[in-house]
Design a protein around this nucleic acid. Structure first.
Lengths: 291, 291
DNA sequence: CATCTGATG
DNA sequence: CATCAGATG
């Protein structure tokens, strides 16, 4: 499988680290920032980068387009030592969208999953590094009235799962998947699951779809390491969820079972504000591969 | 002419003053508040009422609809001693709209001008009081690219001028017209008129239309009292107009020549914030009628 | 209760 | 640079 499709050049900016002695331990973060414009202009994202110095940050819901990134100078406001890769919605301005900021130069970056009717909303970026592959996804929300439930579970999830399986199988390198999967896996993953079976992110269909991914041989890293812990990654502002700790765990790091050995730890960072989602972190050690 | 068309009952609220000895001096204000919701919710309007205690306040660009007024409880947040009359756009939510708040109970209130295709945007309220008639208007803006210039000058202005003439002629009572007329009358009425002949609010067509109203026997009260004064009632936020005093005079009090005797003074209140327009005030003395 | 767009001024 | 709506989450 050829991951070399296109390099993001027109938005390339700054100089990523090219280390003589590559570090083996990495901190990878994922954050649904609910609007890159607001995140950057209000300073949340810059403050986060400054405070936490992620090696790689996967962003969801950038809600912007290439033209706006350039016109607002967002690309220039981000720290120089990060390379930027953006996948914006082609179908609609200001909707969905993903991004990767990275201090480590990827060998290749690929956008989308080669299924044209899924590839209109900027939902997937695959970055191939020297020793691993990273896929950042923003899974479609099933929406109010579950109007997009069938599309999401029967079409997107299915084809996306096939895609990551293909990447996993055709590559020897460890695979890391991060994203807002828009599903709370089990009861423990919602502050109060009662009566939510017909709500987007907790329908039987979405949960079954998620379990089917796990069944293909993947590990939900957080739940794997912390079987009984209850932390949330998304808080609705409507109910003052963050303040009341009424949230949902819908953002995940997922790795193939064969690669779980590289994982050191994962964490949820509730105190980091700026979005209705909070960031999550994954620490890995690539040297643990050989062990 | 029958001004008794409909009384606003469903939004009626509070108890207007019913004086044993009606005052003869009145302070009437006009303000384009650029959104009743913002004006009330951010407190600007309430602060204004508290500080200045207008007898009557004519509002332009309420940008709301009856449902929102009720749902947001705007009518309940306004002081009890004002009666409220609202004319909201039927064609489109959150667009245009006028209102009158008054401590003096009107005998009748009439909405619009009986020309159906002008009566869709909530632009005119006529209130008949014991000793005078008040018409509040929000004249259509000609828009970017002057896309609505022909409608505005050839249709709306024409029919509106006919309407006020009819009210004036068919009534003995003094007439007061207030409104955002969306035209700067002369060079002195813009901070820098150069090159603005193709801009909405300063085209020859709009200015001629305004002069044709004056030519029918009306007086631009501010200019009548202050032939050489330069004050503005509208400031574009795009150019930080308020701060730099770069504005336009497009809000007016206008009275028939025969009624100019009731006027004591008029003033522009630049320091009152909360909108891209500032309020204007008209002081009248109805006892001066007999003199 | 946020974000975004797009219309309007 | 404001306001508003409507879509989305």
């Amino acid at each position: 499988m050829d991951l070399i499709l296109k390099r993001n050049t027109h938005l390339f900016h700054g100089k990523a680290l090219e280390q003589d002695q590559p570090q083996s331990q990495l901190k990878i973060w994922h954050w649904n920032i609910n609007g890159l414009g607001a995140g950057v202009l209000k300073g949340h994202l810059l403050r986060f980068l400054e405070n936490h110095q992620p090696d790689i940050l996967c962003l969801n819901e950038t809600k912007t387009d290439y033209q706006s990134i350039l016109e607002k100078g967002i690309h220039e406001k981000l720290p120089l030592h990060y390379e930027q890769y953006w996948n914006c919605s082609k179908a609609r301005r200001g909707y969905s969208g993903t991004g990767i900021l990275t201090r480590i130069k990827p060998l290749n970056v690929k956008y989308d999953i080669d299924v044209q009717h899924h590839d209109q909303e900027g939902r997937v970026i695959t970055a191939e590094f020297d020793k691993f592959i990273l896929i950042s996804v923003y899974v479609p929300n099933s929406g109010d009235g579950l109007r997009r439930l069938d599309y999401r579970t029967q079409e997107f999830d299915k084809d996306f799962h096939d895609y990551i399986d293909k990447v996993r199988i055709e590559n020897k390198k460890p695979l890391i998947l991060s994203g807002d999967m828009n599903v709370a896996r089990k009861e423990i993953d919602i502050y109060d699951a009662k009566g939510k079976e017909k709500s987007a992110c907790y329908t039987p269909e979405e949960r079954a779809s998620f379990e089917s991914l796990i069944g293909r041989g993947y590990v939900d890293v957080y739940r794997h390491l912390y079987p009984d812990k209850q932390e949330f990654t998304y808080f609705s502002a409507r109910i003052r969820g963050h303040e009341l700790n009424k949230g949902w765990r819908i953002d995940y790091f997922i790795v193939p079972q064969k690669d779980v050995g590289i994982v050191i730890d994962t964490s949820v960072h509730k105190s980091i504000i700026g979005s209705d989602h909070v960031p999550i972190q994954l620490q890995i050690d690539l040297d643990k591969l050989q062990e």
